[in-house]
Measured scan of single mutants.
Amino acid sequence: GSPLAQQIKNIHSFIHQAKAAGRMDEVRTLQENLHQLMHEYFQQ
Score class of each variant (00 low, 15 high):
His35Glu: 13
Ser2Leu: 14
Val27Trp: 03
Ser13Gln: 14
Leu30Phe: 04
Ile15Ser: 00
Asp25Cys: 07
His16Glu: 15
Asn10Tyr: 08
Gln17Asp: 09
Gln44Gly: 09
Gly1Ser: 12
Gln6Asp: 10
Gly22Val: 02
Pro3Leu: 13
Asp25Glu: 12
Val27Gln: 01
His35Thr: 11
His35Pro: 00
Glu32Phe: 08
Gly22Ser: 03
Gln43Val: 09
Asn10Lys: 13
Ala5Val: 12
His16Asp: 13
Ala18Phe: 04
Ala18Glu: 02
Met24His: 12
Ile15Glu: 00
Arg23Pro: 01
Gln43Arg: 08
Pro3Asp: 14
Ile11Val: 07
Ile11Ala: 04
Phe42Pro: 02
Gln31Asn: 05
His39Met: 15
Lys19Tyr: 12
His12Cys: 13
Gln6Ile: 09
Lys19Ser: 06
Ala21Ile: 03
Ile15Gln: 00
Gly1Met: 13
Leu30Ser: 01
Ala5Leu: 15
Gln17Cys: 10
His16Trp: 10
Ile8Ala: 01
Phe14Gln: 15
Ile15Gly: 00
Ala20Phe: 04
Ala18Asp: 01
Thr29Glu: 12
Gln6His: 07
Asn33Thr: 15
Ile8Leu: 05
Leu37Gln: 01
His35Trp: 14
Leu30Tyr: 04
Gln7Asp: 04
Gly1Lys: 09
Ala18Lys: 02
Val27Phe: 04
Leu4Trp: 06
Ala18Ile: 03
Val27Leu: 06
Thr29Ile: 13
Arg28Lys: 12
Leu4Pro: 02
Ala20Tyr: 04
Thr29Gly: 05
Ala21Ser: 06
Glu32Arg: 10
Gln6Phe: 07
Leu30Pro: 00
Gly1Ile: 13
Asn10Leu: 15
Glu32Pro: 00
Met38Pro: 00
Met24Ser: 05
Gly22His: 05
Ala5Phe: 14
Arg28Asp: 05
Gln17Tyr: 07
Glu40His: 06
Gln43Tyr: 07
Ile8Val: 03
Gln43His: 10
Ser13Met: 14
Arg23Ala: 07
Arg28Cys: 06
Ala5Pro: 06
Gln36Leu: 10
Met24Gln: 06
Met24Tyr: 14
Gly1Leu: 13
Phe42Gln: 08
Ile11Met: 11
Gly1Pro: 11
Ala18Cys: 04
Lys19Thr: 10
Thr29Val: 13
Leu34Gly: 00
Gln7Phe: 05
Gly1Val: 13
Leu30Val: 01
Leu30Cys: 02
Pro3Val: 12
Leu37Pro: 00
Gln31Glu: 12
Ala18Leu: 09
Arg23Leu: 10
Leu37Gly: 00
Gly22Arg: 02
Ser13Thr: 12
Gln44Pro: 06
Gln43Asn: 11
Ile11Lys: 01
Ser2Lys: 09
Gly1Ala: 11
Arg23Gln: 06
His39Phe: 11
Ala20Val: 09
Gln43Ala: 12
Gln44Trp: 09
His35Ser: 12
Pro3Met: 14
Leu30Ile: 01
His16Met: 12
His35Ala: 15
Ser13Ala: 14
Leu30Met: 03
His12Lys: 14
Met38Trp: 10
Gln44His: 11
Lys9Met: 10
Ser2Trp: 11
Gln31Lys: 09
Val27Ala: 06
Val27Ile: 05
Arg28Glu: 08
Asn33Gly: 07
His35Arg: 15
Arg28His: 08
Leu4Gly: 02
Leu34Arg: 01
Ala5Arg: 10
Leu4Phe: 06
His16Phe: 08
Gln7Asn: 04
Ile11Pro: 00
Asn33Glu: 15
Tyr41Gln: 04
Gln44Asp: 07
His16Val: 12
Asn33His: 15
Gly22Asn: 06
Lys19Ala: 13
Gln44Cys: 13
Glu26Tyr: 05
Met38Val: 07
His16Gln: 15
His12Arg: 14
His16Asn: 12
Asp25Phe: 03
Gln36Phe: 08
Ile8Gly: 00
Pro3Asn: 14
Gly22Asp: 04
Ala18Pro: 00
Gln17Asn: 07
Asn33Val: 15
Thr29Tyr: 09
Ala5Glu: 12
Ala20Pro: 01
Ile8Arg: 00
Gln36Val: 08
Gln7Met: 11
Ile15Trp: 02
Phe14Tyr: 11
Tyr41Glu: 02
Glu26Ala: 05
Ala21Trp: 04
Glu32Asn: 08
Leu34His: 00
Met38Tyr: 12
Ala21Val: 04
Met38Asp: 01
Phe14Gly: 06
His16Cys: 09
Ala21Gln: 07
Asp25Pro: 02
Gln31Thr: 13
Ala20Met: 11
Glu32Gly: 06
Met38Gln: 04
Gln43Lys: 12
Ser13Phe: 15
Asn33Pro: 01
Asn33Met: 15
Ile8Asn: 00
Ala20His: 05
Gln6Lys: 06
Ile11Glu: 00
Thr29Arg: 15
Gln31Tyr: 14
Val27Met: 05
Ala5Trp: 15
